[in-house]
Amino acid sequence: MNPLISLNNLGKIYGDKTALHDVNFSIYPGEFVALVGMSGGGKSTILRLIAQLEQPSSGKIAYAGSRLPVTRVMFQNDRLLPWMTALQNVSFHAHAAATQKQAQSALNSVGLSEFADSFPSQLSGGQKQRLALARALMANPELLLLDEPLGALDALTRRNMQQFIRQIVDEKHLTTMLITHDVDEAARMADRIIVVKSGTNVYEVAGAKDGSPEEVADVAQSVLAVILQPDESAVRA
């Protein structure tokens, strides 16, 4: 199978600081990939390059069929528009008038059917993130980018959202890339985990989705070990 996108020797320099160098990995259609690593390791920069919010300094991103896949980002802070109702927030970027129905069904799919006319400030933290997810799903994206979307939620809501997101991704067969610094979250949700460290990808391991708590803990352990290793002995994937 051809990858949906491939990152080839990707590098990014801000001023005299190298944020990324020699990043090489691919994401395949239908796959759920998690990028983990410490803050400042470069994982967010990778997401921003994929989302076209920034341009790489070197290397390139190749797309299947050399066409840009429809990409949607869900950010850590919900980035909802406070002056729009839930329904308007979901459909604000869509052009056609017929999207009202689509928007309502997107709301339904995240369990916010009754909140169509509510403003973001009237929703709880978890509801806001579900709304942000509904917005990301509106355009039927080929690639869904999740930038630490659950970072600001409390532990319980967070666990529920992890399940919920994974469930929806499975239902819609979405290709997804999750960025997180929570190794447990990565182990629990992802098909494949890529560790990003010091500006490049250093390690890959299969996730423990649907696994027992022990299996999840094992994967998380091994990922954490790589992240915490001193730089010199880093293992190239």
């Binding site: 076209q52 949607r72 528009l81 970027h93």
Partner: peptide, 27 residues
């Protein structure tokens, strides 16, 4: 600026950025 970035990530053109984000945000 995060809302502006979100708008751009969601493919809004300049006119839409203005009418959906800039103006209501400044109102």
């Amino acid at each position: 600026p995060e809302l502006m970035e979100m708008g751009r990530a969601y493919g809004l053109n300049r006119r839409q950025l203005f009418s959906k984000i800039v103006f209501p945000g400044a109102l």
